[in-house]
Design a protein around this nucleic acid. Structure first.
Lengths: 235, 235
DNA sequence: ATTACTATAGCTCGAGTAG
DNA sequence: TCTACTCGAGCTATAGTAA
């Protein structure tokens, strides 16, 4: 099986019961810096204010978080060590669970013509660079819009909300802001590489799927409005 | 921030201290079925044989594992519930940590000509189908071999061992077996899409990087033996 | 060899409360 | 309000030991 991995295990032992507190802090954004009150934290971890307080103190003493207490709460931030412990556990879980996780979802939808602004957004340098950097392809200047109709696909689309995907940062340019979002690698009709793009603040609802691709999908697949398309979305 | 997610939290509370035992079981392959002895398990979780025994009993009672005890150990398997708890924690960690994780590694290497068997393997139907299915492209019948020289790249190459990547199953055909492996999406010289292929039982050591691509990389990038190539490997 | 019971030692929790 | 101390109750681990 696996070699006795004493490296990480000792650290886990040290967090012990406080692991869930550390996890809760991370979930609340503790990898950057957050403000919490001990009673808030207590509610989240399902224990008393006193326990939450003690956990923070001990996590700090053990070097997993830094903390600055004030009259109305504490500023808390996970240290490299704290993030490292969670990362170790994350890696173990990833290895152990990945074989049992679905590697892709299938979403079907009907091609329709949008307002043509897809091309505008895709070609903004702030987005384009990230697509090249993170997806590994130069996106065709335009998006393929699919309207999701069947219930199964809608469910799958909603499931995407729960996956982190590939982060696309927002930015400011041309005197306005361009919102953040995420994307997922995908395969259209089992043939052509593409990526699903999901803006966190979308003008389309969750029943529309926007795709970008290194090629002009409509031409490559001979698509016209109303055609049904199958998208395999890699998680 | 995040809505109070009472769904999963209750389950976590129930595992409590035994979370690390459950995690250790998962790490040892408990999502399928494994044989463990309580003293083995005790060593792995860093506690006594008695504690390990009790944890197994309680995890079973709580419905997280199934267990069958015999004279020389126990057969243990995580239940759907048990896997579900770990999956919940995995998801939380994924969301919390992904922004802090590197999304790619850079590996540099020198082009060299291999034994020409890359083409043979890539064109085996059992592999080819998986590449199309999981990578989304039809691989050019051949591989580009890179010899890794600098220490930094070697370190990065070794780090790949710790990432699950995209699983490639082994299979039997033509009266022999073709081994399993994994691959990673990659970008060669910041331009051309490719994938790093790592066989679990490789004839090359870890100082050689094998690449497949939808295009003939040597031609597309004008490469000849001895040229240095930069590979951005997406994790 | 195993698993796992019993009894005790030690640790963690939360109520009360101070600053 | 906030954080965080003290201390008794309860929970958890280990040693010894049986099957």
């Amino acid at each position: 099986m696996l070699a006795e991995d004493t490296r990480g295990l000792d650290a886990w032992k040290k967090v012990g019961k406080m692991f869930f507190t550390l996890l809760t802090l991370a979930e609340a954004g503790g990898t950057r810096e957050i403000e919490v009150t001990t009673s808030d934290l207590a509610r989240k971890i399902g224990s008393s204010q006193q326990t939450a307080s003690r956990h923070l103190i001990e996590l700090e003493r053990a070097g997993f978080i830094t903390r600055s207490v004030s009259r109305k709460g504490c500023k808390v931030k996970l240290t490299e060590l704290g993030i490292g412990v969670l990362r170790d556990i994350y890696m173990v879980l990833k290895k152990a669970l990945e074989p049992t996780l679905p590697t892709y979802l299938v979403i079907r939808g009907m091609v329709f013509t949008g307002l043509g602004e897809g091309a505008y957004y895709v070609t903004r340098e702030g987005y384009r660079k990230q697509f090249v950097e993170k997806l590994g392809f130069e996106p065709y200047p335009g998006t393929l819009n699919l309207r999701i109709i069947d219930a199964e696909s809608l469910r799958a689309r909603r499931e995407l909300d729960y996956y982190p995907g590939i982060e696309i940062r927002g930015f400011t340019a041309e005197g306005r802001t361009f919102g953040a979002g995420k994307c997922f690698r995908a395969l259209v009709n089992d043939e052509v590489e593409a990526a699903v793009v999901i803006a966190y603040r979308s003008h389309y609802g969750p029943s529309v799927l926007e795709l970008i691709s290194p090629v002009y999908l409509r031409e490559k697949l001979g698509l016209k409005d109303g055609d049904e398309v199958k998208v395999k979305v890699f998680l």
